[in-house]
């Protein structure tokens, strides 16, 4: 039954990966900004939730505060860091370095403010129960998968059915066209950041309860989001979702064969091969130059 247990575990981890990856993919797909500080958004949201919740204000207040923090951070990054750099027509890499720098600063700031050690959100929901003989699933696993589904569907409807969503999709396809229609690419970009950053909140909150938090968490989150975005195909939100689940499953099922220190290598070997053999990703458009 080990494989079934690992598959279920993989789905839970994959759901969290998918949620963060979809946010990154949305931002990256729409704005082409290599938002490496997306991992910092995650850490920030997780710690704010932890803080508010542990002060006794309750889960709802915690989620609200985490959302405000995540969206606020994303929008500020876009306005204060990326917008000025893009005004100089700074290269894609200039943006990356700035973003990475902010990521380092946030990680250490969080460490100073909230302490550098391990913290965890205590909830009975993280306790697994035996659902089948030898197969344990925690209630949070179902919540994680459900969240991934609900948020993805919500995002999908938003992008298809609202004017703002259509604008965002247009931004991804052709920023020049946006101007022709009298929309501001800058404003749309800010919306993309707000939305993309908001999407990390459920994953951040659930991670706080299942795996626990430390300030250095952002790095791994970021690497996985990037891998999922590329494997899924840049610009394809659905691709990021599928790839997020896929990477979670691959990481977990790899334990059947390999020691766990190879699991990250498995993820990135998949990424490397994808770029070499199918750079457009699962659902993306052609990318080779």
């Amino acid at each position: 039954m080990l494989w079934l247990q690992l598959a279920i575990t993989g789905l839970q981890v994959g759901a969290l990966y998918a949620l963060t990856a979809v946010g990154f993919s949305l931002i990256f797909g729409c704005t082409r900004i290599f938002h490496f500080a997306h991992g910092a958004t995650f850490v920030l949201a997780a710690y704010v939730f932890y803080y508010v919740e542990s002060q006794g204000y309750g889960t709802a207040a915690g989620v609200l505060a985490a959302s405000v923090a995540a969206v606020g951070f994303g929008v500020l990054m876009d306005r204060l860091v990326y917008a000025p750099i893009q005004r100089h027509e700074g290269s894609f890499f200039t943006v990356f370095v700035a973003s990475f720098g902010i990521g380092i600063a946030v990680q250490n700031l969080v460490g100073m403010v909230f302490g550098r050690s391990f913290v965890t959100v205590t909830t009975p929901l993280s306790r697994s129960v035996e659902v089948l003989d030898g197969v344990y699933v925690s209630p949070l696993a179902w919540i994680a998968v459900a969240c991934a589904g609900v948020f993805f569907l919500g995002l999908w409807f938003f992008l298809r059915r609202t004017n703002l969503g259509t604008g965002l999709r247009a931004l991804a396809d052709n920023p020049e066209l946006i101007r022709v229609f009298g929309l501001s690419p800058r404003l749309l970009s800010t919306y993309a950041f707000a939305l993309g950053s908001f999407l990390v909140v459920p994953a951040a909150v659930i991670t706080g309860a299942t795996a626990g938090l430390n300030p250095a968490l952002g790095h791994h989150v970021m690497l996985i989001s990037l891998a999922a975005t590329i494997v899924g195909g840049i610009g394809s939100i659905g691709g990021a979702l599928v790839a997020g689940f896929g990477l979670g499953l691959a990481e977990s099922l790899a334990l059947l064969q390999f020691d766990s220190q190879w699991t990250e290598a498995v993820t990135f070997a998949i990424l490397f091969l994808f770029i070499l053999l199918r750079p457009s990703g699962l659902f993306g458009r052609a990318a080779t130059s």
């Binding site: 690992l6 575990t9 981890v13 977990s252 766990s260 699991t263």
Partner: peptide, 9 residues
Amino acid sequence: AQQFSGIAA
């Protein structure tokens, strides 16, 4: 590593 649910299994 941060995730040990697989290891736990």
